[in-house]
Design a protein around this nucleic acid. Structure first.
Length: 425
RNA sequence: GUGGGCGUAGCUCAGUUGGUUAGAGCGCCAGGUUGUGGUCCUGGAGGCCGGGGGUUCGAGACCCCUCGUCCACCCCA
């Protein structure tokens, strides 16, 4: 056993899996940048107060926060999600609205690790600040949807609900509390405890014992104000108009307290684990103000990278490609030619790898094969003396001898033209 | 935080009722008559059997503790 291992709930994303993560983020960026969202990179830790706004009844705040005092005596916390920090950023810099941003990065929550759940986990997401337009909710929801489609996922369903305006929500919570208390003897012990803290969350219970009580519970729909109802209707009409299928789920409540009006969740139906929500979001019109900024509406979502890739695995989509290289240099003389040629070819824009430690030709050829290179460039004693090299096509096994000086145009004729990597100084 | 399963080579796993030098496949390295990979053959390296106590003449196997991991609850992405 090595002396050190990754901390619980964290892990190394090794190659080649890490390459898949990179491709994932790149594809997400491509999707949302097509809609005018720009990349934002907020800090990984902030004043603890920023995150307390997620809600003092939430587990995220009460027991999962990685908070500590820094050497200057400041109370700070590793971010458990991105939204609060982005709202803090908005309040601090006051950009013009609508401010449309996307992000990709790690979050931290002190939980016990499980399938699709880690202490350090990565999300991509978008946020828009400064507009109450219900059709913006539609755009946000549709972009997430479109991204799942672009990955090739088929078994993702969109759940939709409205939590109403703060007053509606409060009235509903009160009605729900009264109802649940009236039937508390039928609830599980755990659900009764949840009821004391946050009645909405009881609706999320997975226990069979609680199901009958939940089914008969009052629904939020009856409590929506005229405005909130209109907003919700517009969102649904917008989704219908662009053909995004959804399912209204009145039991859908989200884990963070700042949501109001539209909430939604993307659920994978091809995951067997308990964690099937691959993404979720909603509207949080009061959050910026809570953080001391001007009253500013906001809407956004976050997608879990791990869980989404898990869903991709189970649907056999967005798979890893085999490694690829243009050329691999085999030098059995002294390695100097490999050094010189790899340097030249890389500068000319090709992807080139080589072997080290002066190993046998057979050994170097094996590494060339493993590298996924299309061509092997072989330098033996003969080639070194004559200033040429043998170029072997590793797919067809055809090979020919050419002058080293002609390597760049020769490679271009086989693998295609490349843009030179120039030093721009 | 609560409950359950599991921890043996880099990876996936075998290891009979506790009994001598702990195995396989894959991967890795080296060879297969001297310049060439992907197939095949041969050989090699690599494990204080997660860690610590205990029971025993003897423990990878049994007991206790601990750490890690997986799964579920909880919660969430």
């Amino acid at each position: 056993m090595p002396s050190f291992q990754t901390s619980p709930g964290t892990r190394d994303i090794l190659p080649p899996q890490a390459g898949r993560w990179r491709a994932f983020s790149a594809q997400f960026a491509d999707t949302v940048e097509s809609a005018g969202y720009e990349c934002i990179i907020p800090p990984m830790f902030e004043d603890l107060g920023v995150f307390l706004r997620l809600g003092d009844a939430t587990d995220v705040v009460t027991k999962e926060m990685y908070d500590f005092e820094d050497k200057g005596g400041r109370r700070v916390a590793l971010r458990p999600e991105h939204t609060a920090g982005i709202c803090r950023s908005f309040a601090q810099h006051r950009p013009t609205t609508p401010w449309k941003v996307w992000y990709s990065g790690s979050n931290f929550r002190y939980e016990k690790a499980q399938a699709g759940r880690y202490r350090q986990f990565d999300q991509v997401g978008i946020e828009v600040l400064g507009s109450t337009d219900a059709l913006l909710d539609v755009e946000v929801i549709a972009l997430g949807w479109q991204f799942f489609q672009s990955l090739g996922l088929k078994n993702v369903v969109l759940m939709l609900n409205s939590l109403g305006d703060p007053a509606d929500r409060a009235a509903y919570i009160e009605a729900l509390r009264q109802y649940l208390e009236s039937r508390s003897s039928e609830l599980s012990e755990e659900a009764r405890a949840t009821l004391q803290r946050n009645p909405l969350r009881v609706l999320d219970s997975k226990r069979v014992q609680d199901k009958p009580v939940i089914i008969d519970a009052p629904t939020i729909a009856q409590f929506l104000s005229e405005d909130a109802r209109g907003h919700f209707e517009t969102v649904k009409a917008g989704l219908d108009a662009i053909g995004v299928q959804y399912e209204v789920n009145e039991g859908l409540v989200r884990g963070l307290d700042y949501y109001q009006r539209t909430v939604f969740e993307y659920v994978s139906t091809s995951l067997d684990s308990a964690q099937t929500a691959v993404g979720g979001g909603g509207r949080y019109d009061g959050l910026v103000e809570d953080l001391g900024g001007p009253s500013t509406p906001g809407v956004g979502f976050a997608l879990g990278i791990d869980r989404t890739l898990l869903a991709c695995d189970s649907e056999n989509v967005f798979e890893l490609g085999a490694p690829q290289m243009d050329a691999f240099i085999v030098d059995v003389v002294d390695g100097m030619t490999a050094l010189r040629l790899s340097d030249q070819l890389r500068a000319a824009g090709f992807t080139v790898d080589r072997a080290y430690d002066g190993r046998s030709m057979k050994s170097q050829m094996k590494v060339a094969d493993r590298s996924g290179a299309r061509l092997a460039i072989i330098i033996g004693e003969d080639e070194a003396a004559a200033g040429n090299c043998t170029v072997r096509n590793l797919m067809t096994s055809e090979q020919q001898v050419i002058l080293q000086a002609e390597l760049v145009p020769h490679l271009a004729s086989i693998v295609g033209e490349r843009n030179p990597r120039r030093n721009t100084q």
